[in-house]
Design a protein around this nucleic acid. Structure first.
Length: 418
DNA sequence: GAGGCGTGGTA
DNA sequence: TTACCAAGCCT
């Protein structure tokens, strides 16, 4: 069996990207995918470059997927906490947390967060700082900022009640096509389609949708399929069934085809192409990012800084950091920190480094113990500066990377004995 | 539209 | 250890 990792590609930043085929602005040929018992009819137009076919399934083929999938879902659905509520706000929260994040990771966050911010109104009236603290460690922190903004908009424009259509939801910050479809269908019963990574994979196999992730034609095909399939009863369950099926059975690697409820309707299964659909995403090599991080003890506290809202770890607290070259000497690192803080600092010693692997960054935090005659209380490089004890810092919104750096710094005993 | 944006699980 | 990957959105 071909493993996905063997097929997966990785490009370095200076690698040549394979040239894309000639682009045609004319509509690609429409290919009807025949039900598995019949031979597929493919009629690419002569004289044109091959384009991803727009899959147009027959009503029979759709029905042969829809029914068995819903039956399977009724028997196999996982008992997830957000499936026990009909509260649109709670469902919305689950969908945002689940973006690019696995179910098992989300569950404790969802329960904690909902307890702390039980309604859209409660969330809207909370300081962003508290919201980010509730998101601490979950990653992709712009989700929390957008959620907070959207809650405020919901209160201001809709009296605290989430709008009930995908079209209206799409106007809110943090709602893309997927999340709008998910909340509209699951919380409000609208026949709104959704396509996530799971659904894309399921469709690629069942309907033999070609093309790489991100390809426009492919995306259009997937959304058209989702829209066709969701028409009917229980649209929310149908959408969840698709995702659940993709997450548990039609997995990226080692899919459980023998347990698959739609095996007989699956074109890839019939053709033996399950392992080659969908093609693996081409990922860029993470870029190196090195930050000099200031460990500045004073009277049982350390200096913390709140990052700008945009960009990496936006709005989060940190030991004040400044970007440096990977091979920068400590003297240069000290200078960068001094510039960021707007005061002179003295280098007291290096406290080692913490490395973190992000999806897109190879992050190194170099800890430098510093001191200074003038202790800063504000500086343009950061939204806010604050001198905190470790206990104070525990309740700040902070990335896991910086939490590790802080733990490492405290382990060295910088605060011991004042 | 391609790249930025986190983290933890898994093989 | 390393690399891939997961219920995407924003610019």
């Amino acid at each position: 069996m071909t493993s996905r990792s063997a097929r997966a590609k990785r490009v370095t930043s200076d690698a040549q990207v394979p040239p894309k085929g000639p682009v045609t602005k004319t509509r690609a040929p429409v290919t009807a995918v025949a039900p598995p018992d019949e031979a597929p009819a493919r009629k690419p137009r002569a004289g044109r470059p091959p384009a991803a076919p727009l899959v147009a399934p027959t009503p029979e083929h759709l029905a042969s997927v829809r029914g068995p999938l819903l039956d399977w879902y009724d028997r196999n659905r996982r008992d997830l906490p957000w499936r026990r509520t009909k509260d649109p706000y709670a469902i919305w929260l689950s969908e945002v947390m689940l973006q690019q994040t696995q179910v098992s990771t989300v569950i404790p966050y969802w329960e904690r967060f909902l307890k702390r911010f039980p309604t859209a109104r409660a969330l809207a009236s909370a300081p962003l700082d508290d919201v980010l603290a509730g998101w601490k460690g979950l990653g992709y922190y712009s989700r929390a900022r957008n959620l907070h903004r959207a809650a405020q908009e919901v209160v201001a424009r809709f009296g605290g009640a989430l709008p009930s259509t995908a079209a209206a939801l799409l106007e809110l910050p943090g709602f893309g096509r997927y999340t709008a479809g998910a909340v509209a269908s699951i919380a409000f019963g609208e026949e709104a389609p959704l396509v996530d990574g799971n659904v894309a994979r399921v469709f690629a196999r069942v309907f033999e949708v070609e093309g790489l992730p991100g390809d426009r034609q492919r995306e259009a095909t997937l959304w058209a399929l989702a829209a066709a399939l969701v028409k009917g009863k229980r649209p929310g369950d149908l959408n969840q069934a698709l995702m659940e099926h993709g997450a548990t059975t039609c997995r990226p690697e080692n899919p459980l085809c023998l347990l698959c409820p739609v095996r007989t309707a699956c074109v890839a299964f019939r053709k033996g192409r399950v392992d080659e659909l969908p093609p693996a995403k081409v990922r860029a090599t993470p870029k190196k990012l090195t930050l000099a991080v200031a460990v500045w003890p004073h009277a049982g506290t350390l200096l913390f800084a709140r990052r700008a809202d945009a960009g990496l770890f936006g709005g989060l607290w940190e030991l004040p950091g400044a970007e440096i070259a990977d091979d920068a000497p400590d003297t240069e690192a000290r200078a960068r920190i001094a510039a960021a803080l707007g005061v002179e600092v003295k280098l007291e010693g290096a406290l080692g480094a913490v490395k973190r692997q992000l999806t897109h960054r190879d992050l190194t935090l170099r800890l430098l113990r510093v001191s200074g005659a003038r202790r800063p209380t504000s500086t343009p490089a950061f939204q806010e500066l604050r001198w905190c004890t470790p206990a104070d810092a525990a309740s700040l919104g902070m990335s896991t990377a910086m939490q590790r750096a802080l733990d490492a710094a405290l382990t060295t005993g910088v605060l011991a004995g004042g």
